[in-house]
Design a binder for these strands. Structure first.
Lengths: 210, 210
DNA sequence: CATTCCTTTATTACTAAGTCTTAAGATCTA
DNA sequence: TAGATCTTAAGACTTAGTAATAAAGGAATG
């Protein structure tokens, strides 16, 4: 498929590049893409000191896991560009077609909310935080393809409660603004499912300790 | 050495917890930690629908790679069970692991918002509607596996503005409540990107129609 | 031409961490 | 005591590799 056979040197370069693009390729897939046998790929990996796919996956996974001190990846919407816990932060998100209302390319409000909410939780200076309430406005619709920059400021902090203000802009135009009340929770509270008010939570008597 | 043998139920819980803490554990390690045989762990994973370690690693890796942009699809959130435009509606959503905060299985606020927002827009009696603003509260955390029933009522309608109230419950307990101001838009307004207030919108002359 | 060297491919044996199936004990319960 | 459920075991197969060894191919050179 790649037509002519490359030199070994070139193949090594291509290999490195392919793996950088997608570290989850197996030897078999690589062999197919480069038009050589699996064994050749193995030799190449050996020569270049590249680990096998399982290793690469595990490395990525554990990096993703450990890099989760400040809540970068997993369930955060938008890319956290900057975050100073307790002070403020910045998040970037590109409005994609999947986020839009039918026709018209208008981004659904909950995407903007999700980005802002993620950011607000991130800037709360606490290992675990939840949204308690929010007051939000969508002064202007955002559209597919636009770059949404959300900026958060912690307005005040009283004990375990943070008030965070988030404004999301496209260029200079605000498309979202809101105030979030974020509650910092300690482990016990979370684990027990009690939330601070109105007493019992699940009430199913599940107790785990370790 | 967890000492005494746990019940199956308890073991399942422990297993989930262990894997949440460290998804890269092999069956063998889990077996050792829980004091049962590997086969038992395999059966447990089968029963709980948990993939093998390689899969978990790959999933984590690819999620980390793709910057996990639109996560767990926020697009259509919840199943619309019933909807009477201009009056009210009902939406059901099962809280999935992908919606949760790491550890602790607490559902992120923006999923609740997304469900409620989707429903609020749906019950607005208009072909095209957008959220203008919202005031929301999360009186209680929701957890993975719970069934979230959102109920919407149109409180008032003035011209193109609807005020919709949404309350989401798990069993009888409210986990979300909010008021949405929904704006019904006509085709022209939407297509031109003008939103009702503050004059010009994008100003970049982008007009798309289909 | 044959030889030598390098690269590539093929073959075989082996591993980790699973899969799926069937079967045999152990334990609980009616 | 009998039946059902839970747990462990055993055997065959899978994927994506490691490692070692053998064989084939082309290109330059004496």
């Amino acid at each position: 498929m790649t037509g002519k056979r490359l030199s070994k040197e070139q193949r090594h370069q291509t290999l490195l590049q392919k793996l950088e693009e997608n570290p989850l390729l197996t030897d078999e897939q690589l062999a197919k893409e480069l038009g050589v046998s699996i064994q050749t790929i193995r030799l190449d990996r050996l020569a270049l000191g590249l680990p096998e796919m399982k290793e690469r996956a595990k490395n990525l996974a554990s990096r993703a896991l450990s890099g989760e001190h400040y809540p970068a990846s997993l369930e955060v919407v938008g890319d956290l560009l900057y975050c100073e816990p307790g002070v403020g932060g910045l998040s970037r998100m590109v409005a994609e077609p999947g986020m839009s209302l039918t026709r018209y390319n208008v981004i659904r409000g909950h995407y903007l909310f999700a980005q802002a909410n993620s950011l607000a939780v991130a800037v709360a200076d606490a290992p675990h935080a939840l949204t308690g309430s929010a007051r939000v406005e969508f002064p202007h619709p955002a559209r597919v393809g636009e770059v949404l920059m959300a900026r958060a400021r912690v307005l005040e902090r009283r004990g375990r409660r943070f008030v965070v203000e988030v404004v999301t802009r496209v260029e200079e135009k605000a498309v979202f603004q809101g105030k979030f009340l974020i509650l910092a929770l300690d482990e016990r509270t979370l684990a027990e499912g009690i939330f601070g008010m109105e007493g019992k939570a699940t009430g199913d008597g599940r107790e785990k300790d370790d």
